[in-house]
């Protein structure tokens, strides 16, 4: 990873923007909160002070999950795009999110106490993401065309959501409500106590990502060239699916499905940095992905008093036209 002058300048701008937007995000909720309560909420928490409770229970978890979900999904998308040599790949379109949704639906509606708990949901989500990741990986050996693989991903998604709707019709109102809330996608369901487990999995994802930088750089040349450069392509693909499942699974468990971030952001990052060096691209995906999701959530918070926009709806409204633009640019 060699940063040229331009990359350094872009990163400096991104590093300056992040705390700025994080600050705006913290203060843009419906209720005005003084600065000192933010400080107290973290270091001298007093659970009788309403402002501090709001900060600790709502604002901070929401901000942290926005950063992790935006950055994590973008990095997962980058992995999928390089691994399948397909600029339109991403965890959502390839059905990896759908795997999470399906398994979460099973566990929430199973009525089994462990499975309906937080830890149960996370485990199911991780497992679902991994299984669907392996399915799409197996299909990638059978189909040659980029479009076919995307179609298979979309079909997997359709298949999963069909089963989910059958499960929904079978479930009782309480479970149905819990699952429907989850499936709308939201950054607001995370609690302060969840943050440690989210951070734990994100750190695993982040650290293991460092070790796939070099294989990813080689995979840009395609599988056969990567092999002649001494890369164990089979293991690398498995590692990439596992990391993607961890990132997507944990994020989906807490936020529900979030579309288009993983597809659009890596493309945007490549346009901005104009490089195939995956160390730079990953860092870029983390910053731009989290800035993107934070900005989306700021918009949602600002209009919250009059209209409730699910995060998934907003990322799709912005992401879908961008992806169409990419398709047009490639075909033109």
């Amino acid at each position: 990873m060699i940063l040229n002058r331009k990359h350094k300048i872009i990163f400096l701008i991104l590093i300056a923007l992040l705390p700025l937007l994080l600050g705006i995000h913290l203060f843009s909720g419906e209720i005005n909160i003084e600065f000192k309560h933010f400080w107290n909420a973290i270091f001298q928490f007093n659970d009788t002070n309403t402002s501090e409770v709001i900060v600790r229970e709502f604002r901070i978890p929401r901000m942290v999950i926005a950063v992790i979900a935006g950055g994590g999904l973008s990095i997962a998308g980058l992995f999928m795009q390089t691994m399948f040599n397909n600029p339109l790949a991403g965890p959502y379109i390839l059905g990896i999110n759908s795997g999470s949704s399906l398994f979460v639906a099973f566990s929430v509606m199973s009525g089994i106490p462990f499975l309906t708990s937080n830890l149960g949901t996370i485990s199911s989500s991780l497992l679902g993401a991994f299984i669907f990741g392996m399915i799409i990986l197996s299909f990638s050996y059978l189909v040659k065309s980029h479009i076919s693989l995307l179609l298979i991903g979309i079909m997997l998604g359709g298949f999963a959501s069909a089963i989910v709707s059958i499960l929904q019709s079978l479930s009782d109102p309480q479970e149905l409500k819990q699952f429907t809330m989850w499936s709308m996608g939201s950054l607001q369901q995370v609690e302060f106590e969840d943050l440690s487990i989210i951070l734990f999995f994100s750190m695993i994802g982040a650290i293991s990502s460092l070790f796939v930088i070099k294989p990813l750089n080689a995979l840009v040349l395609g599988e056969s060239q990567a092999l002649t450069l001494g890369i164990h392509v089979k293991y690398v693909r498995l590692a990439l699916i596992i990391i993607t499942a961890i990132l997507t699974g944990v994020i989906t468990a807490f936020c529900g499905p979030i579309a288009f971030v993983g597809l659009a952001v890596p493309n945007l990052v490549k346009m901005i940095f104009k490089t195939q060096s995956h160390g730079i691209l990953m860092l870029g995906c983390f910053f731009i992905g989290s800035l993107f999701l934070i900005s989306c959530d700021i918009i949602i918070q600002l209009v919250e008093s009059s209209i409730h926009i699910p995060i998934n709806a907003l990322t799709s409204i912005i992401g879908a036209p961008f992806v169409i633009a990419i398709v047009l640019k490639r075909l033109a």
Partner: peptide, 11 residues
Amino acid sequence: LGRIPYTNALG
């Protein structure tokens, strides 16, 4: 990228 066999884990 031809140097990949010789570089460290981070490439």
